[in-house]
């Protein structure tokens, strides 16, 4: 099975190389992991060279810098091959994928994280000057949770890195307790950590082209539904762009992660 077929058709328009300078935000919760979206985004950007459907009409190729805070390379190598059939070890050998491991390496400060990623960007751009680089950060909110940096510092670092690559995607957690401080009228009874993590997620969403969130079904667990996936426009959905691309289409659908790693996305009321 080719990798293209492993991406649900309903999400194909979103899981591909975004336009220049865009930021995509993917959120998951404790009960609903966004890993299946991450692995599909990585594989979609690596899968097809010269494929117009992936926004690469000019014959250039895409490359990915995959920064991880919660898993190591082995986990993702297995996960991506299992769920999408793409072997990232080969892409890493070819130099189309740089894996930055902030999980096992000692990158406890935000400056160390920045330096590690900046080195990877420089290496990749030297090896493939024409490649459009997508920077994917998996759970950078770990840095906030560890109290290693403030939201403003992470934000500034992210902008510095984003300005060096084609586009970026960030995966983070959006559980309700992490976001509660964002809507509170009075922040007095929230801890500084709650305030920082809520501020981080919503400031990311304000910069995003779209926010794709997965969450549990409102009505509780079900055997044939893993959760709800919703795509909403972010705060920066093309108001600035020189060309009129049209706006992001907002959808909400249900999905089911099957035992073999395949995912079905279907409308409410439809049968998986």
């Amino acid at each position: 099975m080719t990798s293209r077929n492993r991406i649900p058709p309903a999400l194909e328009a979103y899981l591909r190389l975004p336009p220049e300078a865009a930021l995509l935000v993917f959120t998951g919760t404790l009960g609903c992991s966004a890993n299946w979206l991450t692995s599909r985004l990585v594989s979609a950007c690596l899968a097809n060279d010269n494929d117009a459907r992936h926004g690469l009409e000019d014959g250039g190729s895409s490359a990915v810098i995959f920064v991880n805070f919660l898993h190591d390379a082995t986990f993702w190598q297995y996960e991506i091959r299992r769920t999408t059939g793409v072997d990232i070890a080969r892409s890493m050998k070819e130099g189309r994928l740089m894996f930055v491991d902030c999980f096992t390496q000692n990158t406890s400060t935000i400056q160390a994280v920045h330096d590690a990623i900046a080195v990877a960007i420089a290496q990749l751009q030297k090896a493939r000057p024409s490649a459009k680089v997508l920077l994917i950060l998996d759970n950078p909110d770990t840095v906030i949770a560890l109290n290693a940096a403030t939201k403003n510092e992470v934000n500034k670092t992210l902008l510095k890195l984003r300005s060096q690559v084609h586009a970026a995607a960030v995966v983070c957690n959006a559980d309700q307790p992490l976001l509660a401080a964002a809507t509170a009228d009075e922040v007095a009874h929230h801890t500084p950590l709650e305030v920082e993590s809520a501020a981080f997620v919503s400031s990311l969403a304000h910069q995003a082209r779209f926010v794709m969130s997965v969450r549990e079904l409102d009505t509780g667990a079900a055997r044939d539904v893993s959760g709800v996936v919703r795509v909403s426009r972010g705060g920066d959905d093309g108001w600035w762009g020189p060309e009129v691309n049209g706006r992001v289409r907002e959808i909400e659908a249900l999905y089911l992660v099957q035992r073999d790693g395949g995912v079905k996305v279907f409308e409410r009321g439809a049968v998986a």
Partner: peptide, 25 residues
């Protein structure tokens, strides 16, 4: 959106599947 305090929901947006007033893009 965030005011709904739904677990895992960041932006409500206006998904076409939702009930209520229908507006074209």
């Amino acid at each position: 959106g965030l005011a709904e305090a739904v677990h895992g929901l960041v932006v409500a947006g206006r998904p076409s599947g939702g009930a209520g007033v229908k507006i074209n893009d």
